[in-house]
């Protein structure tokens, strides 16, 4: 037997070498294939090497990528800084536009409510003197503006047009000491003239001592004079002082308009409530909007009072 094996040793080994792999072939390749003992020995040797090589490769690649990244970091940083600056400007601009939109929407609602023909203007300057309280707007004769046109906001009366140029106009606010508006108390219908006094307070003059005026009462324009339409808020009574003797009482008015935050205004070029007479001047026809020139007989002497000087 042994002699037989020795004689056919090569063929027996060859047969085994062919048989073993064929027997080892597993057609059910999806069956679980656990490691055998000697497989685990091999894996124990090779897996740390695989981990080390992979770790080295990862760090080499990461280092190379970081190096490339650093090469462009400064340029990217500058670009991002510039982009950030532009975005911040855009955000500020959009926020400003949003606020402006809210204000203009208020002005639009106000105009539609009172059925007014108006021109929207932006405040571009204030009085050069602290004693006078005029403002300058960016609309003028080319937009149809004429002197003695009423200037309002959604909150109330701002003033009236003092004088105009082609593209700008000076406005006398109701805070100016030379301004005067005929107003009535909305609740009691008491009448008086609102005149400017300080930077944030007006006074109601010629209100009779017997008139029913209380702090908190709202004053509105009476419509007399033809400049301001009737019913536009002028201010709120902030203080009332009745003397023991006399004909009138002292009334302080807080204007409805916050002049410290005034940015856009409406110039009323025509309103239905006032019986105005239209006089189209050659200059007016040159503008984009034809404005009526106010020359009403009902215009009272106080409302026609002109400032004695210009201070813009």
């Amino acid at each position: 037997m042994i002699q037989y094996i020795k004689e056919y040793r090569f063929y027996i080994i060859l047969f085994l070498f062919i048989l073993i792999p064929i027997v080892g072939i597993d057609t059910s390749t999806r069956a679980p294939r656990n490691y055998r003992f000697y497989d685990r020995v091999i894996v124990t040797i090779t897996s740390p090497i695989q981990s080390a090589i992979q770790w080295t490769l990862d760090h080499l690649v990461a280092g190379y990528q970081n190096y490339i990244y650093l090469l462009h970091t400064r340029q990217e940083n500058l670009a991002l800084t510039e982009e950030n600056r532009k975005l911040l400007n855009t955000i500020a601009s959009l926020r400003e536009t949003q606020h402006e939109n809210v204000r203009l929407r208020g002005l639009l609602n106000f105009r539609e409510k009172l059925k007014l023909d108006t021109v929207v203007a932006r405040v571009i300057g204030k009085d050069v003197s602290t004693e006078f309280r005029a403002i300058r707007i960016n609309r003028g004769e080319s937009s149809g503006l004429r002197p003695d046109m009423a200037v309002v906001t959604a909150e109330g009366v701002v003033g009236r047009v003092l004088r105009t140029t082609q593209d700008s106009a000076d406005i006398v606010t109701i805070l100016d000491v030379l301004s005067a508006i005929d107003a009535i108390v909305e609740r009691s219908r008491a009448r008086g003239i609102v005149e400017g006094m300080t930077d944030d307070v007006c006074q109601l003059r010629f209100a009779l001592r017997t008139d029913d005026i209380e702090p908190g009462d709202l004053l509105i324009s009476s419509g007399l004079g033809g400049i301001f339409p009737k019913g536009v808020p002028v201010g709120t009574v902030s203080k009332v002082h009745r003397k023991r003797f006399g004909i009138t009482q002292e009334v302080e008015i807080k204007p409805s308009v916050d002049f410290t935050r005034l940015e856009e205004v409406l110039v009323i070029t025509h309103h239905e409530a006032s019986p105005v007479r239209h006089e189209t001047t050659p200059q007016a026809t040159q503008g984009t909007q034809t404005a009526p020139a106010i020359n009403s007989p009902a215009l009272g002497p106080i409302e026609r009072t002109q400032p004695k000087g210009t201070h813009l």
Binding site: I20, I42, T46
Partner: peptide
């Protein structure tokens, strides 16, 4: 040695069991 090498290859592969044993043995022979 060929069978052992093939087994090492199969440990590190998802190939069907016996595939490398057969192919490497064929090459060896």
């Amino acid at each position: 040695l060929t069978l052992l090498f093939a087994n090492i290859a199969e440990i590190h592969s998802a190939a069907p069991r016996g595939l490398f044993l057969t192919s490497y043995m064929a090459i060896f022979l």
